[in-house]
Each structure stands twice: as C-alpha cells, then as structure tokens.
C-alpha cells in the first residue's frame, strides 16, 4: 500500500476512529472517576465528568469537522482534475463517513447534559 493510499484510507475512516476515541475516553473517564469516587470534583463550577465529556466531545466534533472540510476540498480538487475512479470513490466515502460521524459524536455526548455522573 502506498503512502497516498494509506492516507486516503485513514481519512476515509477518520470520522469513525475519532468517534471510537471519543467513546473510549468518555466511558473511561466516567467509569474511572465513579470507581475512584472523585466524580464530585468540580472544575469552574462544573462537575468533572460533564466537563471532560463536553471537552472531549467538542474536540472530537472539531476534528471530524476538519476531516469533513478536508474531504470536501479534496473531492472538489479530484473532480476538477484527472483523478482515477478509486480516488474519487475514497473521497466520497470520506465525506459520507465524516458527516455521519459528526452526528454520532454529538449524539454520543448528549447524555452529559442530562444525567448525573455516577447515580
């Protein structure tokens, strides 16, 4: 696999990889703080668990939005040039996957706004 292809596949899957990282971090943070009984700690008046979830979700959202922007730009560039069908296919897949991932990431972070951390 050439470096270009590796990059294309990575960008294609990037949205879901970011979702997976977000999921692992927010679940890991919640479980750890609850188990260690430090979830009541507050940062700037906000509970540490919602703060971590909000921060991770925001970071994941921004990263995936960046991937989507890159994928859209790349797709436009490929279509205006003499790109191969595989390149165009991979860029389309990157757009679809990153767009879907943005929705999944936001959806995944919503419970932090509603539920108590360790109840």
């Amino acid at each position: 696999m050439t470096r270009r292809r590796f990059w294309q596949v990575f960008m294609m899957l990037c949205g879901f990889i970011i979702w997976a990282v977000q999921f692992t971090l927010i679940y890991g943070a919640t479980s750890t703080t609850c188990a260690l009984e430090v979830a009541e700690t507050r940062l700037l008046g906000i509970g540490i668990v919602p703060a971590v979830i909000a921060a991770v979700t925001l970071a994941a959202f921004l990263c995936t939005a960046g991937v989507l922007t890159y994928a859209l730009r790349e797709h436009r560039r490929l279509q205006s040039g003499n790109a191969g069908v595989t390149d165009i296919f991979l860029s389309q897949a990157a757009i679809l996957i990153s767009a879907f991932s943005i929705a999944a990431i936001v959806w995944q972070g919503l419970p932090a706004l509603i539920l108590p951390a360790c109840a």
Partner: peptide, 26 residues
C-alpha cells in the same frame, strides 16, 4: 459501542449506560 446494553441490569452508573444506549440507537 453497544456491548454494555447487555449489562443494563448490572448496576453500572446511568451515565455510562446512556453512552451505550446512544450507540445502540445510532
């Protein structure tokens, strides 16, 4: 991201359950 939805009745924190609930609907 769904595995804990088989463990909803094990007493895990509600917030943790909700992550898996979200993924299960997604």
């Amino acid at each position: 991201g769904l595995w804990v939805h088989h463990m909803f009745a094990t007493g895990l924190p509600k917030m943790s359950l909700s992550f898996f609930s979200a993924a299960s609907t997604a």
